[in-house]
């Protein structure tokens, strides 16, 4: 297990954003964290990556307790996150943006810029290397966010909705990229709303609702879990759906 999360909780005033969440991530896997808006997914990511300190519980990365460590130290240990709201270094070119990530392991400016080109090819940004980051489309910025994170050569990559805001064609282009990252030996944990992507990419999914984990398992089983359906569609929906199906079957 590359990542073990034990009984993590965090409240903001009276709001329990994350409650007693435990989960573990197997090395070399792609797994998903799903759940309705406001479920606490991004807060959980922020705790894992050190941006928010938990009220209780612990995070173990590669067997080491990293709870409460600052983000840059967690990144140096090999866990890198991306942001749901992409945050490029707007004034800098695509190449310079990616090089910042590459500099984590590379001191030489020249080598870091060369590494940036290599990573850009990996995510399909090689045509845009000289563009200022601010000139990229949304899809381009998502790729850039991914590229910068890969350039740090992480062992575990936390992807926060890298597919949100992309059209179906762009999503189809991104899927092999993410699979390629895993094939290169990087473990991927992703927050994702695009179910098609969760189904096709991940072998394991967890569902967060109101700050608590309510289900875990293979994506196919998750999708038919009544608790999960209710979390997304409201209380009683699963029952109504079942009845509707039965009625349809009887007719």
């Amino acid at each position: 297990m590359i990542l073990q999360v034990r009984n993590i909780s965090r409240s903001f005033g009276g709001l329990k954003a994350v409650q007693d969440v435990s989960l573990s991530v197997r090395e070399g896997s792609i797994s998903a964290l799903i759940g309705p808006n406001g479920a606490g997914k991004t807060t959980l990511f922020a705790i894992l990556s050190g941006f928010i300190k938990p009220d209780g519980g612990s995070v173990l990365f590669k067997g080491k307790d990293i709870t409460g460590m600052p983000p840059h130290r967690i990144c140096r240990l090999g866990m890198t996150r991306t942001f749901q709201l992409v945050q490029p270094f707007a004034a800098q070119t695509v190449r310079e943006n990616i090089a910042v990530g590459a500099h984590l392991g590379i001191a030489s400016r020249k080598a870091a810029l060369a590494k940036a080109e290599e990573v850009a090819r990996q995510v399909g940004l090689e045509e845009q290397l000289h563009k200022p980051a601010i000139d990229l489309t949304i899809a381009g910025r998502k790729r850039l966010e991914l590229a910068r994170a890969i350039a740090t050569e992480p062992r575990l990559l936390l992807l926060d909705e890298v597919l949100a805001g992309l059209n179906p064609q762009e999503i189809n282009e991104m899927l092999p990229v993410i699979r390629g990252i895993r094939d290169a030996g990087v473990t991927v944990l992703m927050i994702e709303h695009v179910m098609q992507a969760v189904m096709s990419l991940s072998e394991h999914a967890r569902v967060l609702n109101n700050g608590s984990l309510i289900a875990e398992g293979a994506p196919v089983d998750i999708a038919s879990n009544p608790l999960v359906i209710e979390a997304y569609l409201g209380h009683g929906t699963a029952e109504r759906l079942r009845k509707a199906m039965e009625a349809a079957g009887a007719a």
Partner: peptide, 17 residues
């Protein structure tokens, strides 16, 4: 490169180590 990254976006910079 780090200094300019911090200038442009502190959060992103710290997420990148």
């Amino acid at each position: 490169a780090w200094l300019q990254a911090v200038r442009d976006n502190e959060e992103s910079a710290s997420a990148l180590g």
